[in-house]
């Protein structure tokens, strides 16, 4: 178990290096000159040249990379070209709200998807199954922003039940809790369908397995047979899917945060890219990629928790 985890951690290192390398080259291939952006449209050539020197942009590429890595290791991601705020400071301020939003989305979407999928599989071919599957297909096909806009229109404007813009406080305050509801419904809503469908097909597979027949032969009640001997085994592929879909969820977070003016890292990324704030864009990409790597690591570990055969005896 521990060995498995360490192995996975070790494997994550080259991926992490790749991400950092990518972040570095991103700066190189974008046609915008950061020195010009930094200096502003009216600056003279001398000023721009001075900034170039300061940013190390005149050094050879490999040297720039070492400078970049050295600064990264010290936790220095540079300063925003737009407002001179350190990138790490902005990232630190936005990472919390994004995690909050993700958590608030997944905490209902995953259980709901799993329950829907399990019920669908158990009552396969019935009317109930068809309704569940239709609902999950609808959930997949609705674009995130569209769902968000509909919610804003009805719950925000029409009935004024819930706030729909910004984040007045952390989630454990009443105001903060109310504010996260609609973004969480929007972001989680697109996640329910894939989880439900994956769970359904996976549980369906396991329900036909020999060990399920054994469980019934023991005289266990159906509820136990389904949860302990079918769903429990079916979770392995479901967890994998959830891991893979996290990337998709990060994309959804960017849209959701923008629609609901949620002060998270996704919105920060969009803003930075639109204003050519390269250090900031780079920082957000690194953090988002890091998140992706961490989630996959967690999935790998969870995989071993769920399936003793993976642990290695």
């Amino acid at each position: 178990m521990l060995r498995h985890t360490l192995e996975r951690l070790l494997l994550a290192v080259p991926v992490l290096f790749g991400v950092l390398l990518l972040g570095f080259f991103l700066m190189q291939v974008v046609p915008t000159d950061p020195a010009i952006v930094r200096a502003g449209p009216t600056a003279s050539m001398e000023v721009i040249e001075a900034i170039r020197q300061e940013l190390g942009l005149n050094e050879p590429l490999w040297k720039q990379f070492f400078i970049y890595m050295g600064r990264l290791l010290q936790g220095d991601l540079g300063v925003s070209i737009i407002n001179n705020v350190p990138v790490t400071q902005e990232l630190g301020a936005t990472i919390g709200p994004t995690l909050e939003l993700m958590l608030a989305s997944l905490i209902w979407a995953i259980p709901l998807g799993i329950v829907m999928g399990t019920v669908g599989a158990y009552y396969r071919g019935t009317f109930l199954d068809r309704i569940i599957m239709a609902a999950s297909v609808a959930g997949v096909s609705i674009p995130v922003f569209f769902l968000g806009l509909i919610l804003i229109w009805f719950l925000g404007f029409q009935y004024q039940i819930l706030p729909f813009t910004g984040r007045p406080g952390p989630i454990w305050t009443w105001e903060g809790f109310k504010a996260v509801i609609m973004p969480a419904i929007t972001l989680g809503g697109v996640f329910v369908g894939p989880v439900a469908r994956m769970t359904r097909s996976s549980v369906l597979d396991v329900l036909g397995a020999d060990h399920v027949r054994t469980a019934r032969a023991k005289g266990l009640p159906e509820r136990t047979v389904v949860t302990r001997h079918a769903l429990r085994n079916a979770l392995v592929p479901v967890v994998t899917l959830i891991g893979l879909q996290i990337g998709f969820l990060l994309g959804g977070a960017v849209v959701t945060e923008t629609v609901f003016s949620w002060p998270g890292i996704g919105r920060l990324a969009v803003g930075a890219i639109l204003s050519s704030d390269l250090p900031m864009a780079q920082g957000t990409i690194i953090v988002l990629s890091l998140g992706f790597i961490l989630v996959n690591l967690a999935v790998d570990v969870l995989y071993a928790v769920l399936d003793p055969r993976v642990r290695g005896a």
């Binding site: 020999d210 060990h211 027949r213």
Partner: peptide
């Protein structure tokens, strides 16, 4: 009344 099956390889649940 109890029953045992032909396939000992798959008749037990691998995760418990």
């Amino acid at each position: 009344i109890s029953m045992i099956f032909q396939e000992p390889m798959t008749s037990l649940n691998p995760v418990h």
